Simulated assay, not measured.
Amino acid sequence: MLTIGRLASYAGVTIRAVRHYHQIGLLQEPERDASGYRTYDAAAVVRLIRIRTLAEAGVPLARVRELLDADPETFAAATADIDRRLRGQIRTLQEHRRRIARLGGGDSLAVPEEVVDYLERLRAVGAPSVLIEGERDAWILMAARWPEAIPVMMAEKVAQLADPKTVRLYHLFGRIAESGADEELLRETADLMSDLFEQASASGELDRQDEVMPDAAFIGLVDAFADAAHPAIGRLRELIAERGWTGWTRVAKREA
């Protein structure tokens, strides 16, 4: 007969594990002998090894009892079900690893892949880091409110980068963000923005804004976020208004 310590040693587990299996009913706890000790036989070693083997294979302890007492057909069905669950968990963990790897650059925190791709394209056209960080934070807000619209929004933003005027605008924004802005630079920027708004209006892009971004209160929140990002934004909005446009996140032609 074996003491609990010897039982644990033979089965390759800890004494604490043996006691836990007693508590949850996987391993029967023997009565004390005349000396007051609990002793175990060979059958207990075999059962404990089977418990350990199943647990190490990833079988939840809640299902170990079912498998210990199952006939071959039931055992096969149960292990197949457990395998399906484990494969699902593996896929989830692999996705977590992929997301963690993406977080290494910082841009992908809380934004979809489409936004990450867009930010990379901004870098490729020479947009400065300070501007890209501001874009990222703004898109965190947008993606939280309209996640289903992000693919369409990003497709349009990426297409805009093919226009040299858009690239020029980002360079101007970068100059404003990095070194401040005099009135001449702000007016040049406002003129270019007005030209781009005219293009967007002619193409019908502005007409789709209400459909893609229908929440006026949230648009106000994003606009306020932009205003707080740099003191020049307020002046830019004034200059844009002088050129016949209102808004920032959602732009519209001012009524005459």
Rank of each mutant, 00 (worst) to 15 (best):
R97A: 11
R98H: 06
R99T: 03
R99N: 01
A101Y: 10
R102V: 01
R102W: 01
L103G: 07
L103F: 14
G106A: 11
G106M: 12
V111C: 11
V111I: 14
E113P: 03
E113A: 13
E114S: 01
V115G: 12
V116R: 11
V116L: 10
Y118A: 00
E120P: 00
E120D: 08
A124P: 02
A124L: 10
V125Y: 02
G126D: 00
A127H: 03
A127C: 11
P128F: 04
S129F: 02
V130R: 07
L131P: 03
L131S: 09
I132V: 04
I132D: 00
I132L: 03
E133I: 01
G134Q: 03
E135C: 03
R136A: 02
R136T: 01
D137E: 06
D137M: 07
A138G: 08
I140M: 04
I140V: 14
I140A: 04
L141M: 05
L141Y: 05
M142T: 10
M142W: 07
R145V: 05
R145L: 07
P147L: 06
E148A: 15
A149W: 06
A149V: 14
A149Y: 07
A149H: 10
I150D: 07
P151Y: 08
M153W: 12
M154D: 09
V158A: 13
Q160E: 13
L161K: 06
L161H: 04
A162S: 15
D163H: 12
D163K: 05
D163W: 05
P164E: 13
V167T: 08
V167I: 14
R168W: 08
L169N: 10
L169Y: 10
L169K: 12
Y170F: 13
Y170R: 08
Y170K: 12
Y170L: 08
